[in-house]
Amino acid sequence: QTTIQVRVPYRVVGLVVGPKGATIKRIQQRTHTYIVTPGRDKEPVFAVTGMPENVDRAREEIEAHITL
Protein backbone atom coordinates (compact mmCIF):
# COMPACT_ATOMS: atom_id res chain seq x y z
CA GLN A 1 0.00 0.00 0.00
CA THR A 2 1.16 3.50 -0.75
CA THR A 3 -0.34 6.97 -0.33
CA ILE A 4 0.17 9.88 -2.70
CA GLN A 5 -1.01 13.48 -2.65
CA VAL A 6 -2.82 14.71 -5.76
CA ARG A 7 -3.00 18.51 -5.85
CA VAL A 8 -5.75 20.11 -7.95
CA PRO A 9 -6.86 23.70 -8.56
CA TYR A 10 -9.50 24.87 -6.04
CA ARG A 11 -12.03 25.35 -8.83
CA VAL A 12 -12.07 21.66 -9.77
CA VAL A 13 -12.36 20.10 -6.29
CA GLY A 14 -16.17 20.07 -6.64
CA LEU A 15 -15.92 18.54 -10.11
CA VAL A 16 -13.66 15.75 -8.90
CA VAL A 17 -15.83 15.03 -5.85
CA GLY A 18 -19.09 15.21 -7.82
CA PRO A 19 -22.67 15.46 -6.54
CA LYS A 20 -22.82 13.98 -3.02
CA GLY A 21 -19.35 12.50 -3.60
CA ALA A 22 -20.54 10.32 -6.49
CA THR A 23 -17.58 11.00 -8.79
CA ILE A 24 -14.87 10.41 -6.20
CA LYS A 25 -16.68 7.24 -5.02
CA ARG A 26 -16.75 5.98 -8.60
CA ILE A 27 -13.01 6.66 -8.98
CA GLN A 28 -12.35 4.78 -5.71
CA GLN A 29 -14.43 1.78 -6.83
CA ARG A 30 -12.90 1.66 -10.32
CA THR A 31 -9.32 1.95 -9.07
CA HIS A 32 -9.64 0.01 -5.77
CA THR A 33 -8.22 2.94 -3.79
CA TYR A 34 -9.20 4.95 -0.73
CA ILE A 35 -9.31 8.70 -1.41
CA VAL A 36 -9.51 11.39 1.26
CA THR A 37 -11.15 14.58 -0.03
CA PRO A 38 -9.71 17.93 1.06
CA GLY A 39 -11.81 19.97 3.50
CA ARG A 40 -13.27 23.30 2.39
CA ASP A 41 -10.63 25.41 4.14
CA LYS A 42 -7.72 23.11 3.38
CA GLU A 43 -5.23 22.91 0.53
CA PRO A 44 -6.91 21.31 -2.53
CA VAL A 45 -5.04 18.01 -2.18
CA PHE A 46 -6.57 14.53 -2.41
CA ALA A 47 -4.80 11.75 -0.47
CA VAL A 48 -4.98 8.53 -2.49
CA THR A 49 -4.13 5.21 -0.81
CA GLY A 50 -3.85 1.78 -2.42
CA MET A 51 -1.54 -0.47 -4.38
CA PRO A 52 0.97 1.57 -6.43
CA GLU A 53 -0.54 0.75 -9.84
CA ASN A 54 -4.06 1.54 -8.57
CA VAL A 55 -2.90 4.81 -7.02
CA ASP A 56 -1.42 5.82 -10.39
CA ARG A 57 -4.71 5.03 -12.13
CA ALA A 58 -6.67 7.05 -9.57
CA ARG A 59 -4.27 10.00 -10.00
CA GLU A 60 -4.81 9.86 -13.78
CA GLU A 61 -8.60 9.83 -13.31
CA ILE A 62 -8.48 12.78 -10.91
CA GLU A 63 -6.18 14.69 -13.25
CA ALA A 64 -8.51 13.99 -16.19
CA HIS A 65 -11.11 16.18 -14.44
CA ILE A 66 -8.68 19.10 -14.31
CA THR A 67 -8.57 19.35 -18.10
CA LEU A 68 -12.36 19.46 -18.55
Rank of each mutant, 00 (worst) to 15 (best):
Q1V: 14
Q1G: 04
Q1S: 12
Q1C: 15
Q1M: 14
Q1Y: 15
T2R: 08
T2K: 12
T3R: 05
T3V: 04
T3S: 07
T3E: 01
I4K: 04
I4E: 03
Q5S: 12
Q5M: 13
Q5G: 06
Q5A: 10
V6I: 14
R7Y: 09
R7N: 04
R7C: 03
R7D: 08
R7P: 10
V8N: 08
V8T: 02
V8E: 00
V8I: 02
V8D: 10
V8C: 01
V8R: 00
V8L: 06
V8W: 04
P9E: 05
P9Q: 10
P9R: 02
Y10H: 15
Y10N: 15
Y10V: 07
R11P: 13
R11E: 15
V12A: 15
V12F: 14
V12C: 14
V12K: 10
V12D: 12
V13M: 08
V13P: 09
V13S: 04
G14D: 14
G14L: 05
L15C: 11
L15D: 03
V16I: 13
V16A: 05
V17L: 11
V17M: 13
V17D: 09
V17A: 07
G18L: 06
G18M: 00
G18S: 06
G18H: 00
G18C: 05
G18V: 07
G18E: 08
P19E: 10
P19W: 07
K20I: 00
K20T: 03
K20F: 10
K20P: 01
G21L: 03
G21H: 06
G21D: 00
G21P: 07
G21Q: 12
G21E: 06
G21F: 05
A22P: 06
A22T: 10
A22W: 06
A22C: 09
A22M: 06
T23D: 07
T23A: 04
I24G: 05
I24Q: 03
I24R: 04
K25P: 01
K25D: 08
K25R: 13
K25M: 06
K25G: 08
R26I: 00
R26G: 14
I27Y: 01
I27N: 01
I27M: 08
I27E: 02
Q28F: 00
Q28R: 00
Q28W: 01
Q28I: 00
Q28A: 14
Q28E: 09
Q28L: 04
Q28Y: 10
Q28K: 03
Q29E: 15
Q29I: 03
Q29R: 12
R30L: 11
R30I: 10
R30H: 11
T31D: 00
T31A: 04
T31L: 03
T31W: 02
T31G: 02
H32V: 06
H32A: 13
H32Q: 13
H32F: 04
H32G: 13
T33I: 07
T33V: 04
T33D: 00
T33E: 05
T33R: 07
T33M: 08
T33W: 02
Y34C: 14
Y34A: 13
I35Q: 04
I35H: 01
V36M: 12
V36D: 11
V36S: 11
V36Y: 01
V36I: 10
T37H: 04
T37V: 12
P38H: 06
P38W: 01
P38Q: 04
P38T: 07
P38I: 05
G39M: 09
G39A: 13
G39P: 11
G39W: 04
R40G: 07
R40Q: 12
R40V: 11
D41F: 04
D41E: 09
D41N: 13
D41M: 10
D41I: 00
K42A: 15
K42W: 02
K42E: 15
K42C: 14
E43S: 04
E43W: 01
E43F: 01
P44K: 07
P44T: 06
P44L: 05
V45M: 06
F46S: 12
F46L: 08
F46P: 04
V48H: 01
T49S: 12
T49G: 03
G50F: 11
G50R: 09
G50Y: 00
G50W: 05
G50A: 01
M51C: 12
M51Q: 12
M51R: 12
M51S: 15
P52W: 05
P52G: 05
E53V: 07
E53I: 11
E53W: 11
N54T: 02
N54Y: 02
N54H: 04
N54K: 06
N54E: 04
N54L: 04
N54R: 02
V55Q: 04
V55Y: 05
V55E: 02
V55P: 00
D56G: 09
D56Y: 10
D56S: 13
D56H: 08
D56V: 14
D56K: 15
D56P: 03
R57P: 01
R57A: 10
R57I: 01
R57Y: 08
A58D: 09
A58V: 06
A58E: 03
A58M: 03
A58C: 08
A58P: 05
R59E: 00
E60R: 14
E60M: 13
E61K: 06
E61R: 05
I62K: 07
I62T: 07
I62G: 02
I62Q: 09
I62H: 03
E63N: 07
E63M: 15
E63R: 09
E63S: 02
A64E: 13
A64S: 12
A64L: 03
A64F: 08
H65C: 14
H65W: 11
H65Q: 13
I66D: 09
I66A: 14
I66E: 08
T67R: 15
T67K: 13
T67Y: 10
T67G: 15
T67F: 05
T67C: 14
L68G: 15
L68S: 15
L68V: 12
